[in-house]
Simulated assay, not measured.
Amino acid sequence: MYTLLLKTHVTLALLSFISFIIRAWWGFSHSALVENKFALVIHQVLTAFMLLSAAGLCMTIGQFPLSNPWLTEKLGLFIVYAISTMVIFQFPLAKRTRVLVMLITCGIWLTIFTIGKAHAPLLFG
């Protein structure tokens, strides 16, 4: 069960991140697709199922945020990641600022992925 949940979680995390990258690209290219409600819903569904698989993994391994530093760090960074994606898509930003926020968002995602792979806190460990 653990292996299936883990593979599902990683796949959903990658698909969610790819969805973010595609939508950000549409925003940079001024495509009308960035306003596509279906694309937003797909991204939200992927993210919701990723969070559900994360909860399932926590229960399976018996480790939880606030009691395990690496999971606390992942959860905190995920919240920052979610906020930064909202900033990119919901606020009018200068192109340079949008690029900077997107790069920071990608860095946050990579940090979350690294922490999950190592099962060890990276920033505050």
Results as ranks from 00 to 15, higher is better:
Met1Gly: 09
Tyr2Ile: 00
Thr3Arg: 08
Thr3Val: 11
Leu4Ile: 12
Leu6Lys: 07
Lys7Trp: 09
Thr8Pro: 03
His9Lys: 09
Leu12Tyr: 10
Leu12Ser: 10
Ala13Asp: 00
Leu14Arg: 00
Leu14Asn: 06
Ser16Trp: 06
Ser19Phe: 09
Ile21Met: 09
Ile22Asn: 03
Arg23Thr: 01
Ser29Trp: 06
His30Cys: 06
His30Phe: 12
Glu35Asp: 13
Phe38Thr: 15
Phe38Val: 12
Val41Tyr: 15
Val41Met: 15
Ile42Leu: 13
His43Cys: 00
Phe49Cys: 05
Leu51Ala: 13
Ser53Leu: 08
Ser53His: 05
Ser53Asp: 01
Ser53Met: 00
Ala54Ser: 12
Gly56Met: 02
Gly56Ile: 11
Leu57Tyr: 14
Cys58Asn: 13
Met59Leu: 15
Met59Phe: 15
Thr60Gly: 09
Ile61Phe: 13
Ile61Glu: 12
Gln63Leu: 08
Gln63Gly: 05
Leu66Thr: 02
Asn68Tyr: 10
Asn68Cys: 03
Leu71Ile: 13
Leu71Val: 04
Thr72Cys: 10
Glu73Val: 05
Glu73Arg: 14
Lys74Asn: 07
Leu75Asn: 06
Val80Cys: 02
Tyr81Glu: 15
Ile83Cys: 05
Ile83Val: 08
Ser84Leu: 15
Thr85Val: 05
Val87Thr: 04
Val87Ile: 08
Ile88Trp: 15
Phe89Pro: 03
Gln90Gly: 06
Gln90Tyr: 05
Ala94Arg: 15
Ala94Glu: 05
Ala94Asp: 06
Lys95Val: 07
Arg96Trp: 10
Arg98Thr: 05
Val99Ala: 13
Leu100Pro: 07
Leu100Ile: 12
Ile104Asp: 04
Thr105His: 14
Thr105Leu: 02
Thr105Gly: 01
Cys106Phe: 06
Cys106Trp: 10
Trp109Ile: 03
Trp109Ala: 15
Leu110Ala: 15
Leu110Glu: 04
Thr111Gly: 12
Ile112Trp: 02
Ile112Asp: 02
Phe113Asn: 01
Thr114Trp: 08
His119Phe: 11
Pro121Lys: 14
Leu122Phe: 11
Leu123Cys: 05
Phe124Cys: 06
